[in-house]
Design a protein around this nucleic acid. Structure first.
Lengths: 227, 227
DNA sequence: ACCACAATGATCGTATACGATTTCATACAT
DNA sequence: ATGTATGAAATCGTATACGATCATTGTGGT
């Protein structure tokens, strides 16, 4: 079945936004987009409202829509939320992850290590996403995964600044991945897995906070204590 | 400024759904609703798509929309997500909660206790929401609060079965509230607050699971360990 | 030179219209 | 009686049209 025009419009606009083709602040004019997409304004409008609900677009009544810009506060809030949700998702997935999946994750982490030497931040970033996706992919609660995916989609528009702006962080990241994998291989208790996974993300967040010159206290949640 | 018609339609439909006026499965026909609301179908359609994005409405292409029904799995998944998010929100809010707020929360809990004797589940449920809202209301991360509110809105359509179906659970709930308040008053570490808040919700979830005859293992996440 | 205000243009919000798709009932064949 | 094809009715998806609203520019007054 051919997708509806509003679906097509949604997919296209979304991809242009997350790919950075339309950068934050770009004005989304209904009539122009309709002409560009070869349809009328109604489906375009629907697509834009959908993107607004997901936080990719800011919309103002009687004024128009622009590609949403992510300021530091929103970025940090979202990353903190993701650290919480991903930590829980990984812990819930832990008992369901197969040995093959763990081996695959380990392999991905070795590739990330190689990226450090090659200085390939783009590939590093993609591998990093794949690594975590692999781990919490077995999470039995699809609702949590949905929230995680939405959060990441929203963050993707803002180019992940971790690798380039925080020296040494990427190397620590790889080490933390290995530690997390060790916990999973040894079938550590859920609480320990959750704490490690959350801490890993929180460390990245804190590294960015330090660069931004913001105090970590108001935004960082101490990770759960290991048993 | 008078709200737009699509906004009006959204508000009205939402209230009718969460109030139970339109029950799950109720067919939402664009033209009928438009006539009922005194506007054309376009704003109604927009409102329905928004409600769909929030999970209050199920929508099928070329077929139509119905009020979303919440099955046991979705209910449990959402409650689990809420337990995680509310636990974190409460922990983040903990250092920011004023003494007056804590006193108010304690007072609410006494009222809930009174509801047990009067057997007033409706009031109990409302007080319960107010209680938790009060505690995590000071959470500095609005994104988390937003997700919590969305989750609750979605659950509200399904009448909370806790009080009536799980005997004794409500009384435990009151006791756990007091324990949580004690932790907050004594300025316990965030991890302890998070563990207690999450455990509280998880207990409710487990109670319901037991009633439904489902195994708790696949859906319950062991709460973080106290330090 | 600066501010208040009116006219203009761009854009949005919604009504209406109609083709497209699905659903349901009916009739027919097996 | 059951299953399948056919038609009509209901409903959705989208195009088009136009009034409403907002940003902006130009004009006059101080």
């Amino acid at each position: 079945m051919t997708p509806s025009k509003s679906e097509q419009a949604y997919e296209l606009l979304q991809s242009k936004i997350v790919s950075g083709d339309y950068s934050p602040g770009y004005r989304l004019v209904l009539s122009s987009l309709a002409a560009e997409l070869g349809c009328s304004v109604v489906p375009v409008r629907e697509a834009i409202r959908r993107l607004e609900a997901e936080g990719l677009v800011s919309f103002e009544r009687n004024v128009g829509a622009t590609v949403a810009s992510v300021d530091a506060t929103l970025y940090l809030n979202t990353m903190q939320t993701l650290s919480i949700l991903e930590g829980a998702a990984t812990a819930l997935a832990a008992p369901l992850i197969s040995d093959e999946t763990l081996a695959e994750a380990r392999r991905l982490n070795r590739e990330m290590e190689a990226c450090l030497a090659d200085f390939d931040p783009d590939r590093f970033s993609r591998l990093n996403i794949a690594f975590h996706e692999l781990l919490y992919g077995s999470c039995p609660n699809p609702h949590i995964l949905d929230l995680v995916h939405r959060g990441w989609k929203r963050m993707r528009a803002m180019r992940s600044p971790t690798f380039s702006t925080v020296p040494g962080r990427a190397r620590n990241s790889v080490a933390e991945h290995d530690a997390l994998l060790d916990l999973l291989v040894s079938q550590a208790p859920s609480a320990a897995v959750e704490a490690a996974a959350r801490e890993h993300r929180t460390n990245t967040l804190n590294a960015y906070l330090a660069v931004a010159g913001l105090p970590p206290s108001t935004l960082t949640l101490p990770a759960a204590v290991h048993p």
